[in-house]
């Protein structure tokens, strides 16, 4: 992969997982990290410390954690406008991302890209809907030509299913049996428009029409998602062509900063089954509190460091 990182990603075990920690703890910690990073961003926005906009993935953390834990060196993720969770699960680089969103020189793209345009080894994102899908397919074709067994993953949302180039790409990826995994996070809302007003027919059938196998799951359970994602990544890596992992989930926060007109009751119901609640039940209260504290302390250090950057 042609990618020259500006500096190695700065990671912290308290955010990405302690050595020897049980997988269940590690998954909780990583989701908690993403959740608190996003909430911290929203607070910093209100405070006026950030420029531009941001699209938080609160409620969808399990998808990022579940998929990325099956990826290896050489694999590549292409993400979209709502990319923070994917990036943090992939790299653990909270400081690089926060500095980027703060517009600082130490940001992963020196403050040029901002929230939606991130590049690091094995990871890229872009803010225009749809176009990243053929880009990810091109990376998959490169991997296929090189015969390196690497997987190209692209994260899209239900709203992106309105873009024509997605279907052009599905067709070509299927014809050429590209090692591409499309992860479609159906969070039920495309900005302010509900999926019912956006999408005719059956979501899974859209992919199936190209002969692309679709694994469909309605879940916010990171354990369930991880098991499924592992199988899907494995099948793509085995050279059986492109696959789609269609996850029905929910975005608990507004689309970008403070633009939410959705029914309060609907959102309240989803808070009862969000990923941290679902998986958090599996942890002892003491373990959970300890992890929460560790994440909080580590993130506070990241924020303090980022604020002090030039």
């Amino acid at each position: 992969m042609r990618s020259t990182a500006l500096a190695p990603a700065r990671t912290d075990e308290r955010l990405t997982g302690l050595a020897g920690e049980p997988p269940g703890h590690r998954r909780y910690r990583r989701m908690r990290f993403i959740r608190r990073f996003e909430e911290t961003l929203l607070r910093l926005f209100e405070e006026g410390a950030l420029n531009g906009t941001t699209h938080a993935c609160i409620g969808q953390e399990a998808d990022a954690v579940a998929v990325t834990e099956h990826l290896a060196e050489g694999d590549h993720i292409f993400s979209n406008h709502r990319c923070h969770g994917h990036y943090l699960a992939h790299s653990g680089d909270a400081l690089g991302l926060l500095a980027e969103i703060m517009g600082k020189e130490a940001g992963v793209c020196r403050g040029v890209g901002g929230s939606q345009h991130i590049c690091a080894p094995g990871f890229k994102s872009n803010g225009v809907q749809g176009g990243i899908v053929p880009n990810a397919a091109g990376i998959a074709l490169a991997n296929q030509l090189a015969g390196n067994g690497a997987v190209s993953v692209v994260f899209i949302g239900d709203g992106t299913l309105g873009e024509g180039v997605v279907y052009e790409t599905l067709n070509m990826a299927a014809l050429w049996k590209l090692p591409l995994l499309v992860v479609c996070e159906d969070n039920r809302w495309a900005q302010s428009t509900p999926v019912a007003a956006n999408l005719a027919g059956d979501m899974a059938a859209r992919f199936a029409a190209f002969g692309v196998p679709v694994r469909e799951v309605g879940s916010t359970d990171v354990e369930e998602l991880s098991a499924i994602a592992g199988e899907e990544v494995g099948a793509v890596r085995a050279g059986r062509g492109p696959r789609v992992l269609l996850i029905h989930t929910y975005r608990l926060c507004h689309h970008s900063k403070s633009d939410d007109e959705r029914p309060e009751q609907e959102i309240a119901e989803r808070w009862l089954v969000e990923p941290l609640v679902v998986h958090g039940r599996r942890l002892d209260a003491a373990d959970r509190a300890r992890i929460d504290d560790e994440v909080e302390t580590a993130l506070a250090e990241v924020v303090a460091t980022a604020r002090a950057l030039p």
């Binding site: 992969m1 042609r2 990618s3 590549h76 890229k124 176009g131 899908v133 053929p134 880009n135 990810a136 397919a137 091109g138 990376i139 998959a140 074709l141 490169a142 991997n143 030509l145 190209s152 024509g164 180039v165 052009e168 790409t169 067709n171 070509m172 014809l175 050429w176």
Partner: peptide, 22 residues
């Protein structure tokens, strides 16, 4: 490689190839 009639994907897949060093 001959492609379907899909200029957006032709350009987009070319972009991915180029990003990957091709």
């Amino acid at each position: 490689r001959t492609t379907p009639i899909s200029e957006g994907a032709i350009a987009g897949i070319s972009a991915g190839l180029a990003l990957a060093g091709y």
